[in-house]
Structures are given as C-alpha cells and as structure tokens.
C-alpha cells in the first residue's frame, strides 16, 4: 500500500484530501451536533447542489458557485428564522429540495451534454486535484482561525443562547459565523463524501467523541482524529474492494458507531453501576 501511495499522485492527493476534510469535519461537526443543527446542515449541503448547477450553467468552476450559493442560503436561512419565527423543521423541508431543484433546472438549461453530477453527490476522492486541495486547505484555515478566535463566545452561544443574549454578548455574530462555517464545511467535504453523504461524516465522529464526556475543545480534537481514521479506512476499503469511496467511508463510520454503542449497551448490562 505504501509503495502504491508513493507511486500514484492521485492517492497522495486523496490522502491529503481526507486529512483536510477531517479538520473541517471535527470542528464543525462538533458544533453542529451540540447545537442540534444536523438537519439544518443537511439542508445547507443540499442547497450547494443548486450552486453546482449554476456553475455548469455559467461555465464557472462549480465549487466556487457552490460555495457562494451555500453561504448565501445559510445566511438567508439564519435571517428568515430570526425574523419570522418559522419552524426550523419546516424551513429545512423547503430549502433542502429547493436547492436540489434549482440545481437540476440549471443543469438542464446548460447547453450541450449534461455533465456527470454523481461525483458531487456522492464524492469521488480519487479524482481530487491539486487545485481542490488548495481550496480545501484555504477554507480549513478560515475555519480554524474562526473557531479558535471566537471559541469562548461560541461555547457560551452553544450552551445557553438566552443567557448569552441577556448578558449582551454578540450572539447574532456567533450565529451568523456558525452558519457561514457550516456552508464552508459542506464545500470542503463535497469532494470527499459528496452532498448526500455529508451528514454521516459530520455526525458520527463528534457523536462518538462526546461519549467520553470531555470538554468541547477535546471533542473537536478527538472528532478530527476519528474522522481522519474513518476516511482513511474507508479509502482503503474502497481501494481494496473497488467500491465508491464516499459510500465506503459512510458505511464504515456508521458501522463503527453502531458497534461501539452495542458494546456500551452490553457493558451496561453487566456493570449496572457504571453510570
């Protein structure tokens, strides 16, 4: 395997790509899980599809339009929610398919052969290019700086929004930055697992990490390590058995989570006092 990695540039790219994706995943996955924004993130991810369609239509690199599109929709969602008080769930149920529908319309309006969208929907880590890596690295840097920069504010916002507001903290800033970061994370992950499979990679590592009951920063670190492990293992499985990489990563990570929870359950049966 090592010699293969040394030999093939695309494998090196794939490995660097998974590591870059893991950083975004661990940082934002933790925020999303703790603030119960998982479905919201799924919705934002799917609006990115509209951006990809727009990219093809305007003949621009789709990843840029996807980024713009998902940041824009994330901000609109945050704004609508704050102003109108529409139920979160209903809002997600609307913009999730709206993003997909727009994508399909844009693609069908694009002249010539319809492009192959599956790599954006399910990810294709083996086709990651140097340019992709540079974009992912740049976006990661933005995420790292923002999360570490506003960490105390973020923690207060995530734990008790009402108290933070009553204290006069810039809660709206925290919320806005969180939504923008979710949109950025989706774009970082699109190449690795794709729009449809993003959710699993955002949920599973922090969900596993928080079982050890550490603090927020440790969960983030642990989630980064875990998602790197899932991605690399998934990549290995995909290479070994010749299956789609995104699917391999998702199936493997959910499988590990299920096994872990089962072991916990069995342990609790035998050692009732352990809680």
């Amino acid at each position: 395997m090592i010699s293969l990695i040394a030999e093939y540039g695309f494998l090196q790219n794939a490995i660097i790509g998974t590591l870059l994706a893991s950083i975004a995943c661990g940082l934002l996955g933790t925020i999303i899980v703790e603030k119960k924004l998982v479905m919201m993130s799924g919705g934002i991810a799917h609006t990115a599809f509209g951006g990809i369609g727009l990219g093809y239509f305007l003949n621009i690199e789709p990843i840029y339009t996807a980024l713009g599109f998902s940041v824009f929709s994330a901000l609109s969602i945050a704004c609508i929610q704050r102003r109108s008080g529409v139920i979160n769930d209903v809002l997600i149920g609307m913009f999730w398919p709206l993003g997909m529908a727009l994508g399909i319309v844009f693609v069908s309006l694009t002249p010539g052969y319809p492009p192959d969208m599956t790599s954006y929907l399910f990810g294709d880590i083996l086709t990651i290019t140097k340019t992709d890596l540079i974009i992912m690295g740049g976006l990661d840097l933005i995420l790292i700086i923002t999360v570490t920069g506003i960490f105390k504010l973020l923690q207060a916002y995530l734990f008790d929004e009402e108290f933070s507001t009553a204290l006069g903290l810039p809660v709206v800033l925290a919320e806005t930055l969180t939504y923008i970061m979710i949109a950025i994370t989706v774009i970082v992950l699109i190449r690795v697992v794709g729009i449809i499979l993003v959710l699993a990679l955002l949920c599973v590592p922090p969900a596993l990490a928080r079982l050890f009951k550490p603090n927020l920063a440790v969960i983030m670190g642990l989630a980064i390590v875990l998602s790197a492990f899932f991605c690399l293992a998934g990549l290995g499985l995909s290479y070994e058995y010749n299956i789609a990489s995104g699917a391999a990563i998702v199936i493997f990570s959910v499988f590990v989570y299920a096994v872990f929870q089962l072991l916990r359950y069995l342990r609790s049966l035998f050692f009732r006092s352990n809680f």
Partner: peptide, 28 residues
Amino acid sequence: STINMQFPISIRQVVLSGRLAGMKPFWH
C-alpha cells in the same frame, strides 16, 4: 428546564461564562 444537560461543559466553565459580559468577540 431550558438548560441543555447533555452539553460537554464543566460547572466552572458554566459559571465563568457569567464573566463574559462586555467581552471582545475574538481572542477573549
């Protein structure tokens, strides 16, 4: 009842958040 008891935070950190009034949002 509005407090999220699942949140990964220690008691000291919770009480410390009371000291955030007038904080600067970045690098506090």
